[in-house]
Design a protein around this nucleic acid. Sequence first.
DNA 1: CGTCAAATTGAAAATTATCAACGAGAGTGG
DNA 2: CCACTCTCGTTGATAATTTTCAATTTGACG
Lengths: 228, 228
Amino acid sequence: MSGSCLAERLGDLAPLTVNEVAALETLDQRERAATRRGVAARERSRRRLFILKKGVMTTSALLADGSRQIMRFLFPNDLIGLPGLAYREAPETIAALSDCTIAAFDRAAVADLFVDHPRLAALILVIGQIERTALTDRLAAIGRASAKARVAAMLIDMRNRVRAMDKSIGDSFVLGLTQEEIGDATGMTAVHVNRMLRQLEEEGLIARENGRMTFANERALMRESTHP
Amino acid sequence: MSGSCLAERLGDLAPLTVNEVAALETLDQRERAATRRGVAARERSRRRLFILKKGVMTTSALLADGSRQIMRFLFPNDLIGLPGLAYREAPETIAALSDCTIAAFDRAAVADLFVDHPRLAALILVIGQIERTALTDRLAAIGRASAKARVAAMLIDMRNRVRAMDKSIGDSFVLGLTQEEIGDATGMTAVHVNRMLRQLEEEGLIARENGRMTFANERALMRESTHP
DNA sequence: CGTCAAATTGAAAATTATCAACGAGAGTGG
DNA sequence: CCACTCTCGTTGATAATTTTCAATTTGACG
């Protein structure tokens, strides 16, 4: 099927009418590939709306002193570039963590879509609010939780998102992140991330072999993630 | 004038047509008062869209251990409850820092509005993204900046927002926050907030008398706010 | 005057960062 | 195939930051 992936995403939130699907399919969707570490940095200044079709990406902000804060991990079907609808200069830096495929939509065309199909606009608004809620959750975690709790929370969150794509995944999955990336997302040093992972492992909450992460005691891990 | 305050807010982003303004004015807007510390907590479960007309409020999340993370400070004309459009249970706890007046809109009526006036929907979407960008900025600050930098950044941000309401304000303003509230917003202890304020004062960046804050050296304060 | 929330301060403890070093594994060019 | 280099993970020692605990102090207010 050649269906629009935007239709697929919006359809997850609410059933779409045939008309709406048809309208979404008229959108010119331009595919592009991005390779690991091949930062799609140039996308920063463009104001396109993307959907990630394959792979994992991050959005992050670079700070004055060169440190980085990862804002969000993007999984297939995630929308990228919504803030670009509000700002001339999209403030997001986008990077691919693995080989990725993205589909780009013209911003103006999306805006036109809203006129004929206001319900689609509402769904995009809903997506924006869902993302925002995820951000506030992270803000609370980073602001108030201990380093170990933040790492535990990120592991659980990642597992849940990986599982959302592949229902067959249980408590073992491949976390395709370096410890530095985990640190950039949770606001701590790579070295400290290492120590926290080690602690979680020594306490029997997780196990690690190669890049594979296994939740040995998910209940305890969950408890740990809500610690002060 | 009895004009809709929602029209006022949206009109700040882009000129509205007469039709759009008229449509906004048909919205039933129910005024309500909230007093300092009189947490509008019950609003948590309701799914209303509010506009703050007078006073200052906060949205915050309460964590498992009783600590609090302030997500956002709300000033007059700010929209409250957008996330409620996406979730049955709005995850925000709203509290009034001073005596406030709010205007409530029915969520369903707002949704109906989108059908006839898609451009208004787009503007609401823009507001959502602006708020979101503010959140990502705070996430980066809390995740990566030092305590002193976070306090400095918050002071500057607050001054800017106060000044946005009252152009006559220069580098001296009343910061109506306790040090504990500053701590809840920046992710640190009230005691440490105190020490950081003291340091900023001793370094000649700010001055304090009663509740009044004065930027003695705004340039240096700005520099401090972008520190690692 | 009594009381209460908020601000302030010092001392000690806990958390997290920094620095420096080493090892394992993956590619790469000779 | 073998150095070689590079990134990533790991670890220890030490320093810096931030929290915690425990008093005071201050100012507003009934």
